[in-house]
Amino acid sequence: MNEDNHKHNRQQNEAKSLSQSCDSIPISEIMITDVVSVSENDTIEHVIELMAKKTHHSYPVIGNNDELKGIVDQDNMLELLFFERTPRRHHTHLMAIRALSEDVRTLMIKHPISIPYDTSLCEAADLMIKHHVDRVCVLKDDKFAGIISKADIIKKAFTLRRME
């Protein structure tokens, strides 16, 4: 009974204002868990095919034990595909090594930004707004649990507004 009341109150609060109630909304509630991921050993051809068929901007790189190894995104892929056209100042040895990547291991951005599973929506939104981050990986017990993007937050806001 108490639990039902609590849920009801929370829904009412959420409907009032997202920015007022975001502290009580855990990101686990709105994150995407059905994520298309890749592994370190996947070939670049495989990732190009994925990017051609799917519309996602980023693909988390997941290890054998579900740990987050890195992330590859469309920016990395464009840099690889058009490396020869990039300005000379980008021709560092690290960029050149990336351009020669044959698998995800050398292309991916290591240590992508991540947040714990129990982070509130407020904190996730603050992070995205303050640091111009479009999407963040979510970890549960140091294992990849999902991904949350600005679009997911906007979708949540839209749902809450419809409840008003």
Partner: peptide, 16 residues
Amino acid sequence: SISVVVKTLIDADYLS
């Protein structure tokens, strides 16, 4: 300082 010759390697298709 290898970055100085990366452009040459690219142009000659010798990077890989």
